[in-house]
Design a protein around this nucleic acid. Structure first.
Length: 793
RNA sequence: GGGCCCAUGGUCUAGCGGUUAUGACGCCACCUUCACAAGGUGGAGGCCAGGAGUUCGAAUCUCCUUGGGCCCACCA
């Protein structure tokens, strides 16, 4: 049994502790363990951007879960994943080397992606290590619990296996249809990847002519460059202004194309001029309209986001340029009646590149999702979430699914679609599972097609990054790689993730794992809210209000940050605010805890003696908190227990119990018996141990150091505390706090020091059991018992 | 357009039909108290956004207003 020699907790104490954990692989997953498995499907962060404070906070919270469940005696699977696939990496490479996808060869482009990845490798994991996160491993590998990279051959081959499975089950099909298309990224996008932004725009009032009567028709549009693809002119059936045009023909300006004019409820009377042109395709409504009206769409925009031959004189121009040229030309011809700014024009844009979405027909692979909407809703109801609003986000999204999931992308740095095609009969060659394939540069696994041809071409498309990400629980539980382990560990215990990717990561994972295994892949889903700045606004690079977790770590170390995360992280509360001031507040609590421990360590441990009533009281208080913590930790609520524990450290334990038993513990004048003193010594140590264990999941570094120096053992290998001592008393914390406060106030109001003597003190009979402690604490000469408290100085 | 959440001393926050309305930071006064001045003790500061209602009784329940924040859908 040791003593704490340092006078305060220093952030410099942290580094050797986590370095030791890393060095001796303290939290490695034990594959031969018979324990119950608690598995966490951690969200793999992108490696090319530094860890931001929101991620840092959520990983810290996950670490609470992991450490708590370890102390419950469970085998915790808590792997670190690193996302290295897809558009974000490609875009970083394009920016870094100032190239575009099609400027260079595929091999060269992939090489550039590797360069970006190499430069950004260790930076993010460093922050996690410093935060004291207890990942199973810090080394990249393919074992259970190892750090995994989503672009590894192992991960990609599992992604390809899942494609092969779904393809052979008939759950994936290829079709050519109009879809969201990002001209900047040059790829098809799923609805989940589209977001809306307020973009300034204009209404252009353009002059059309009625063929039959020759009169002018003024039509408002925000997309004049699409006039070439005009299909129909419509007005609202209720609109008397245009009734006379019904059934007539309109002639488009410049292109002189004749199209029918009809009444249709899609046109709103009070928008623009009340009469609208339907072109293919300005937005999804247009697509629906063309389909419903069986109009032949005319695609005027090509894959590069430029106008094609159908646009006539606009051919070769980008959409934005075409709009400018078109407006200018209309104006010259006297066909532009008016130009007015359109306020709050919401434009669909690519969530990554922010380019406006165009709608282009392309041949892509689709995963069937529309037909299993009801099943997905049922799974959503089955999933255990911690706030109904989380489930609602998921249900809303499932409800809004209207087309199947396009999974192929025309990019390079992602998992390749594992297919080859026979050059003679066009039949698709599906390779066997279990290997990573790159068909664009490899030969197929067969020599000859069934038709006899030996000439093949490899598929060049790759998968949507969510097609990769959605197998993360399967990957970490070794689906299709270690069947015994998968059977034992599935379903994954917990999916922790942000609310903003419910419609992508959570939804696609549930969908894909259901299609593959027929089951719900998670028991619990913990949807965390956002860390916002101190004013309550979302942090974003553009706003410049981002707090770098490294700065917090440099300034305070991990422990104040972790304690802050526990105390502020109220699940019920929604978004939570971050400021250095509040982290600093947590630091003081650590200092208090350290000094409480140092005080206790001044005394030798004692065998349990007959507990005095004060001892019974503090132990009962602590047991109540322990039971509360056990129950709430299991529900992923660390906020409420942390708040109570903090209060216990400062108030109940330090200010009241310690003061109360100080004299008995020192026993300098031998006023107390040896047994009475031992009871105090026992209680001090028992309470400290229990308190440290309750706090260990939250602040693992300081508790580990104190426990190691005092007990020479690893606190994280201990069991989560259960009441080990019987403690019963009528006395409540309020009784003691109120009495002490009254005595202090009385002394103070009479200008006496707190050490001054009290001639006589009358206390309620109920408190008789702590009378001796009170007498020593407050320097009371004579103790009396009565109905109310009386203090005679 | 549809829906959701929030509003409590200067700031943040607890509160879930009856409390002298909680705590933290900040502020003021006093204390070199033997674990801790990164501490202790005491104090000032709020008609609980506004209005109406339900109730014996409302910060708490209902409705409206205002001010913040968020989600979904859609637009010529």
């Amino acid at each position: 049994m040791g003593q704490l020699t340092d006078h305060a907790w220093q952030k410099e104490f942290e580094q050797p502790i986590y370095a030791q954990w890393k060095a001796d692989k303290r939290y490695a997953f034990n594959t031969s363990s018979k324990r119950k498995i608690f598995s966490i499907d951690t969200p793999p962060p992108y490696v090319n951007t530094p860890v931001h404070i929101g991620q840092a906070t959520t990983y810290v919270l996950m670490d609470f879960f992991a450490r708590f469940h370890r102390m419950l005696g469970e085998e915790v699977l808590f792997p670190l994943g690193l996302d290295r696939n897809g558009l974000p990496i490609e875009m970083a490479a394009e920016k870094r080397f100032n190239i575009k996808l099609n400027d260079v060869s595929r091999e060269e482009f992939i090489g550039k992606c590797y360069e970006v990845l190499d430069e950004s490798s260790a930076a993010s994991t460093e922050s996690f290590l410093r935060l004291g996160i207890s990942f199973n491993s810090w080394n990249v590998g393919t074992g259970i619990g190892d750090v995994y990279e989503t672009d590894s051959a192992d991960y990609r081959s599992l992604t390809q296996d899942t494609f092969i499975d779904l393809y052979q089950k008939g759950l994936i099909y290829e079709d050519e249809r109009v879809n969201n298309y990002c001209p900047g990224c040059q790829t098809t996008l799923a609805d989940a990847e589209v977001e809306y932004e307020e973009r300034p725009g204009h209404f252009y009032d353009i002059v059309f002519t009625c063929k039959e009567t020759g009169e002018q028709i003024i039509i408002s549009t925000t997309r004049p460059e699409l006039i070439c693809s005009l299909g129909m002119i419509i007005f609202n059936p209720e609109d008397t202004r245009y009734q006379k045009l019904a059934g007539k023909t309109a002639i488009s300006p410049l292109y002189h194309k004749e199209v029918p004019i009809r009444a249709h409820p899609s046109a709103e009377m009070d928008k623009g001029t009340g009469i609208m042109m339907m072109c293919s395709f300005g937005d999804l409504t247009d697509i629906r309209f063309f389909r419903e009206e069986s109009l032949q769409p005319l695609i005027a925009i090509n894959k590069e986001g430029k106008m094609n031959e159908h646009a006539g004189f606009l051919a070769g121009l980008s959409v934005a340029e075409a709009r400018k040229v078109m407006v200018q030309k209309l104006d010259e011809e006297g066909l532009l009646a008016r130009k007015t700014p359109a306020k709050a024009h919401r434009t669909p844009v690519c969530e990554r590149s922010k380019d406006p979405i165009e709608f282009i027909a392309m041949k892509e692979f689709y995963v069937k999702q529309v037909e299993c909407k009801e099943k997905m809703k049922a799974l959503a109801h089955q999933l255990h979430v911690f706030h109904e609003s989380s489930r609602q986000i998921l249900l809303d999204w499932i409800q809004s699914v209207s087309i199947d999931w396009p999974i192929t992308r025309r990019r390079y740095y992602a998992t390749e679609v594992p297919l080859w095609y026979c050059n003679s009969c066009s039949k698709a060659i599906v390779p066997p599972k279990g290997k990573y394939y790159q068909p664009w540069k490899e030969d197929p696994p067969v020599k000859k097609c069934a038709c006899g041809s030996a000439s093949f071409r490899g598929e060049t498309r790759v998968f949507d990054t969510w097609f990769d990400s959605s197998i993360s629980p399967l990957y970490i539980l070794k689906y299709s790689r270690n069947d015994a382990f998968f059977r034992k560990s599935a379903p994954c215990t917990l999916r922790p993730q942000g609310k903003e990717i419910v419609r992508t990561w959570l939804y696609y994972t549930l969908l894909k794992c259901y299609l593959l295994t027929g089951k719900l892949i998670f028991r619990d889903a913990w949807i965390n809210y956002h860390i916002v700045d101190e004013k309550g606004h979302k942090m974003s690079k553009s706003k410049g209000n981002v707090i770098d977790p490294k700065a917090a770590l440099d300034k305070f170390g991990a422990e104040p940050f972790r304690l802050w995360a526990a105390i502020e992280g109220n699940l019920e509360q929604g978004d939570f605010r971050c400021s250095f001031e509040r982290i600093e507040g947590a630091q003081k609590t650590l200092s208090k805890l350290w000094n409480v421990a140092r005080f206790v360590s001044l005394f030798p441990e004692a065998k349990k003696a007959t507990l005095q009533e004060a001892d019974q009281w503090i132990i009962r208080e602590l047991h109540e908190i322990a039971a509360f913590a056990r129950e709430h930790y299991a529900q992923y609520d660390f906020h409420n227990p942390a708040t109570r524990l903090k209060h216990f450290v400062w108030e109940t334990f330090a200010s009241h119990y310690l003061e109360l038993v100080k004299s008995r513990a020192y026993n300098r004048d031998a006023k107390f018996t040896k047994a009475e003193q031992d009871a105090a010594l026992f209680t001090l140590h028992y309470c400290l141990d229990t308190l440290l264990k309750l706090l260990a999941p939250i602040i693992p570094l300081i508790t580990a150091k104190i426990y190691y120096e005092l007990r020479n053992k690893d606190i994280h290998a201990e069991q989560f505390p259960k009441p080990a001592v019987k403690a019963e008393t009528e006395i409540t914390a309020d009784d003691i706090i109120n009495l002490n406060s009254e005595i202090w106030k009385s002394k103070k109001s009479q200008g006496k020091s707190l050490k001054s003597e009290i001639a006589s003190l009358t206390i309620p009979k109920k408190l008789k059991g702590i009378a001796k402690d009170l007498q020593a604490m407050h320097q009371v000469k004579e103790m009396r018992y009565g109905e109310r408290v009386e203090i005679v100085v």
